[in-house]
């Protein structure tokens, strides 16, 4: 029974970790730009990034299918260039998790960056530091609580992702059956003991990561 839980645990951690790495990299860039720069289309970027937060995940998934399918804008060119059909692979699940958790990262982080005193950045400029150096060594370190909060929320959202993943990656045993999907399948097929094991693992994971984050953040004075 336990071995049936191993693959879902493995694929879930893999998808959530990769998605969170992408979310942090892309999210920090978008958050900084939204908080500190004025550019045309800023509102549009904000709306596009936030949209998956308010759309039903199945709708987000459906839109991703349109985009990534072999006839879709992105999917078609990817298939023509590499011969790789991304739908119903774990990579598609990473994209789904990325899209639905990005707004959580951007909302939390851009608020944290926005609350960093701009005069600290100005001082760094007058002391000869470029905008990039200032962002890396002044702004982001001072926004780290918000960044960590965004990271934890994004990871949790990626682990719990269900609707969009089901649409773009299916629920293929040994391939894309993440924990959330497996719990649903196990429950549907009356396999209560597998469902219980998966639920217990997920609850423990969540509690541990919450406690670890709280402990880390509480150690920081600024």
């Amino acid at each position: 029974m336990l071995e049936q839980a191993i693959f879902p645990l493995y694929i879930t951690l893999k998808i959530a970790t990769l998605s969170t790495i992408l979310v942090v990299l892309v999210g920090l860039l978008i958050s900084y730009l939204l908080a500190r720069r004025d550019f045309t289309g800023k509102n549009l970027v904000d709306i596009l990034v936030t949209l998956p937060l308010v759309l039903p995940p199945t709708v987000t998934g459906y839109l991703l299918v349109i985009l990534l399918g072999k006839n879709g804008v992105l999917g078609q060119s990817l298939f023509e260039m590499t011969g790789f059909g991304i739908l119903f692979t774990w990579q598609a699940a990473v994209i789904a998790a990325f899209v639905v958790s990005l707004p959580l990262m951007v909302k939390t982080t851009s608020a944290a960056i926005g609350s960093v005193d701009r005069e600290l950045e100005y001082v760094a400029y007058t002391l000869g530091h470029s905008e990039l150096e200032t962002a890396l060594f002044v702004t982001l370190p001072l926004a780290k609580k918000g960044i960590i909060a965004g990271l934890v929320l994004s990871f949790a959202r990626a682990v719990g992702e269900f609707g969009a993943t089901l649409m773009v990656a299916g629920n293929i045993p040994g391939k894309t059956n993440t924990m959330s999907l497996s719990i649903y399948t196990a429950f549907q097929s009356g396999n209560d003991s597998l469902a219980n094991i998966l639920v217990v693992i997920l609850v423990i994971m969540s509690l541990v990561s919450m406690a670890a984050t709280a402990k880390l953040v509480n150690r920081w004075k600024v």
Binding site: D117, E119, T126
Partner: peptide, 16 residues
């Protein structure tokens, strides 16, 4: 500002 490098002291000091 990086090329001017003035010594600038802000009202609230803006220490890091």
């Amino acid at each position: 500002p990086q090329d001017r490098r003035p010594g600038y002291v802000f009202q609230n000091y803006a220490l890091f």
